[in-house]
């Protein structure tokens, strides 16, 4: 009796398990589709010829694939795209290099008061930038830097320092102090030590920081809209103005959104692992 019942019970358990697994996968696929809805809409709309975009037929596949919207978006937005490149490149590199040096000092040359200075620096990455915007605008106009990319680069470098310093400080904390001490005994000074020991080990740290800063600066809007003029506007500002046009051209807007999202999206897809690390580093934790 029991010899017969056992395999049956096991079979029932197995069936229940298969059912649970199927339910889990079904739920995951359902949510994945929901997350992808906006992407579907962007792609479908931007590939339609303008005449085919109508308000009640947004979900249909394009009857005829057209690259007109993309060509128009590239024409309209390419100066702004280039502005974004010219802004993001230097600002990212500068804030990463400064962050690396700061992180080196704060992790390997700890001084009295560091535990007060560092949190005070970190506070700068949490403030609402509205609370510094008016004086920032005043200072940059006095320096004749408003309406140029230089002012915006300076701004992003300074307000990027807290997070880059934080990530490098935590990263360098993993490098054993013995390594540093050994190099010091061999006569390495502050800069030798950085060049010979710390910097060669920094590559993953730099990747995380550069990806993080690149994404943040490329996507930023408040500083960009306040501190630039039409000639120096980055792509986020130009994109937001596409939406405010007279005749709303949805295929143009969607193609523009795709264009604006493309660089950060590519970085995310190719280097997602490092992106997530930067993401989690943002939640402080020593």
């Amino acid at each position: 009796m029991s010899a017969l019942a056992l395999p049956q019970r096991r079979q029932a358990a197995l069936r229940r398990r298969t059912f649970t697994r199927a339910a889990i996968y079904a739920t995951l696929i359902f949510w994945a589709l929901i997350y992808l809805i906006p992407i579907y809409l962007v792609l479908v709309t931007s590939l339609k010829p303008r005449a085919e975009v109508s308000l009640d037929q947004v979900w249909t596949l394009p009857r005829q694939v057209s690259t007109d919207a993309f060509i128009a978006a590239v024409e309209r937005l390419s100066p702004n795209f280039l502005n974004s490149v010219a802004l993001t490149g230097p600002a990212t590199i500068l804030s990463a290099v400064l962050g690396s040096l700061n992180g080196y000092v704060l992790s390997k040359w700890r001084f009295r008061g560091a535990n007060i200075v560092f949190p005070l620096m970190l506070f700068g990455m949490f403030i609402p930038y509205q609370s510094v915007l008016i004086p920032l605008f005043q200072l940059l106009s006095q320096l004749r830097l408003t309406g140029t990319l230089w002012g915006l680069i300076l701004t992003h470098v300074v307000y990027g320092l807290p997070i880059t310093t934080l990530i490098f400080r935590n990263y360098y904390a993993e490098i054993p102090d013995e390594l540093v001490e050994a190099a010091q005994i061999d006569g390495a000074n502050f800069f030798n030590l950085y060049a010979k020991v710390i910097f060669p080990l920094s590559l993953p740290g730099f990747v995380v920081v550069i990806i993080w800063q690149f994404t943040q600066i490329w996507n930023e809007y408040l500083f960009a809209v306040t501190l630039t003029d039409p000639a120096s506007q980055p792509i986020t500002v130009a994109l937001s103005q596409l939406a405010g046009g007279q005749a709303i051209d949805f295929s143009l807007q969607m193609a523009g959104s795709f264009l604006a999202a493309l660089p950060t999206l590519l970085v995310y897809i190719l280097l997602g692992r490092y992106f997530i690390r930067g993401l989690l580093a943002g939640s402080v934790k020593g």
């Binding site: 949510w31 994945a32 997350y35 992808l36 809805i37 906006p38 809409l41 962007v42 709309t45 308000l55 009640d56 037929q57 947004v58 979900w59 994404t215 490329w218 996507n219 930023e220 809007y221 986020t236 994109l239 937001s240 596409l242 939406a243 949805f250 807007q253 969607m254 523009g256 959104s257 604006a260 999202a261 950060t264 999206l265 970085v267 995310y268 897809i269 997602g272 992106f275 997530i276 993401l279």
Partner: peptide
């Protein structure tokens, strides 16, 4: 990757796309 990719986008892109998704005579309503 699918659940996390919107984090890589700008709020401006999200705003532009969802503005359309939520436009009353179109988007999600249809």
């Amino acid at each position: 990757t699918i659940f996390l990719f919107p984090m890589a986008l700008s709020f401006v892109v999200t705003g532009t796309v969802w503005r359309w998704l939520f436009s009353p005579r179109s988007g999600l309503n249809t």
